[in-house]
C-alpha cells in the first residue's frame, strides 16, 4: 500500500511540474510571437479610424501593456483556483469552449486511437511473424509510404477522392449546414467524422505497425520460440500463445504514446476538414493571440497525454507478472 501511495505521489508531482513547464513554454512562445494582436484581430483599417483612447482600451483588453511576469502569474493563480479565464476571441469562458470542442473531437480522437492501435498491432504481428515473406514486404512498404506522407496532404487526398469525386462523405464541418443544432442526427455527425478519423488512423498505423514488427521479430528469434518450435508448436500457435503475449508490453507503451501523436495530428486534420474540434480551436487561438484559450488547450492536452502514459504504467502492472507478483510480495 505504501508503495502504491508513493507511486501516485511521485506521478502527481511530476504531472504538476510538467503542466507548469508546458504552460510557461506556451506562454513565452506566444509572447515572443511577432503577431500584433490588435492588427490581427481588429485590422489595420479599423485601427486607423479609432481614437487613441479606443486603441488604449483595446490594448488593455489584449494585455499588450501588462508586464510578462504579471500576466503569467495572474493566469497561473486563477488557473490554480480553477478559473482558466475568458477567451479573448470567443468571449466565453475557456473551460466552456474547451468542453464543447472536446466533445466534438473526442469521438474522432478515440476512434482514430483505437483503430490505429488494432490495425497497427495486427499488421505488425503479421509482418514480424512472416518476416521476409510477401505479407511482411507489403506491410513494410505500406508503412514506409504512409510515414513519409504529410498528414495534411493525406487529408487532402481523402477529401478529394471520397468527398469531391465520389461524394460519399461531406467535405467538411461536423454537422450539415443550414440545419438546426437540435435536429442533427447521430448518423449525420458520424458521416462528418469518418474522413478526419480515417486520416488520423491511417497516419497512426505505420508507427505502431513498424515498432510492433521489430518487437515481433525479436520474439520470433528468441530462445523460447525456438523451444516452442522444437516442441512441435505450429506457427499460428506460436504467434497466438507466445507472440501476442510478449508483444503486449511494448504494444501498450506504443499505444499510449500514440495519444500525443493523434492529438498533434488532429490539429492539422481538423484544419483541413474545417472540423470545429479542439485542434482547430488551438490553431485559431494561436494565430489570434488568444492567450487564455491557447494556454487552456495546451494544459489540457498535456494532461491527457500524461494521463495516457500513467495508464500505460498501470497496465504494465496488470500484464507483466514480474511487476504484479513483485508488488504483491512487497
Amino acid at each position: 500500500m505504501k508503495h502504491r501511495l508513493q507511486f501516485a505521489g511521485k506521478k502527481l508531482l511530476r504531472m504538476a511540474l510538467l503542466l507548469l513547464g508546458v504552460s510557461l513554454a506556451a506562454f513565452l512562445l506566444m509572447s515572443a510571437s511577432p503577431l500584433d494582436p490588435l492588427q490581427t484581430n481588429v485590422g489595420q483599417a479599423a485601427l486607423g479610424s479609432m481614437s487613441q483612447e479606443q486603441i488604449a482600451q483595446l490594448e488593455d483588453y489584449w494585455g499588450v501593456n501588462t508586464p510578462l511576469a504579471e500576466r503569467y502569474l495572474g493566469w497561473l493563480f486563477s488557473a490554480l483556483q480553477g478559473d482558466f479565464g475568458t477567451s479573448l476571441l470567443y468571449r466565453q469562458p475557456v473551460l466552456q469552449i474547451i468542453g464543447e470542442r472536446l466533445a466534438n473531437s473526442l469521438g474522432l480522437l478515440l476512434f482514430a486511437w483505437v483503430l490505429s492501435g488494432i490495425l497497427g498491432l495486427t499488421l505488425g504481428v503479421l509482418a514480424g511473424a512472416l518476416r521476409g515473406r510477401w505479407p511482411d514486404k507489403l506491410v513494410r512498404g505500406w508503412c514506409l509510404l504512409i510515414s513519409s506522407t504529410p498528414t495534411f496532404w493525406l487529408a487532402l487526398l481523402l477529401l478529394t477522392v471520397f468527398a469531391v469525386w465520389l461524394g460519399w462523405f461531406p467535405s467538411g464541418l461536423s454537422v450539415p449546414i443550414g440545419v438546426e443544432a437540435d435536429s442533427v442526427t447521430a448518423l449525420e455527425r458520424l458521416r462528418h467524422a469518418v474522413l478526419p478519423a480515417l486520416t488520423l488512423s491511417i497516419t497512426g498505423v505505420s508507427n505502431i505497425a513498424l515498432h510492433t514488427r521489430e518487437k515481433m521479430v525479436d520474439v520470433m528469434e528468441s530462445d523460447y520460440v525456438l523451444f516452442a518450435r522444437a516442441r512441435g508448436e505450429s506457427l499460428p500457435a506460436i504467434v497466438l500463445r507466445h507472440g501476442l503475449r510478449n508483444v503486449a508490453l511494448p504494444a501498450i507503451t506504443l499505444q499510449f504514446a500514440s495519444v500525443s501523436e493523434i492529438i498533434g495530428g488532429s490539429v492539422l486534420v481538423e484544419q483541413v476538414f474545417s472540423y470545429p474540434g479542439l485542434g482547430q480551436a488551438a490553431v485559431t487561438a494561436g494565430l489570434g493571440s488568444d492567450m487564455p484559450l491557447l494556454l487552456g488547450i495546451t494544459v489540457l492536452t498535456a494532461a491527457i497525454v500524461f494521463g495516457g502514459n500513467v495508464a500505460a504504467d498501470l497496465l504494465y502492472g496488470v500484464v507483466d507478472p514480474k511487476i504484479r507478483r513483485g508488488a504483491a510480495k512487497a
Binding site: 528468441s222 530462445d223 523460447y224 525456438l226 523451444f227 516452442a228 518450435r229 522444437a230 516442441r231 512441435g232 508448436e233 500463445r241 507466445h242 503475449r245 510478449n246 503486449a248 500484464v319 507483466d320 507478472p321 514480474k322
Partner: peptide
C-alpha cells in the same frame, strides 16, 4: 521431423531463457 518433434523426438534446452517469460 515436424511431425515427430515434441512427440517422439524432444529437445531439452540449456536454460530458463527457453521458457516463455510471461507464461
Amino acid at each position: 521431423a515436424e511431425q515427430l518433434r515434441g512427440r517422439e523426438i524432444v529437445l531439452v534446452p540449456q536454460g530458463v531463457t527457453y521458457l516463455d517469460p510471461l507464461m
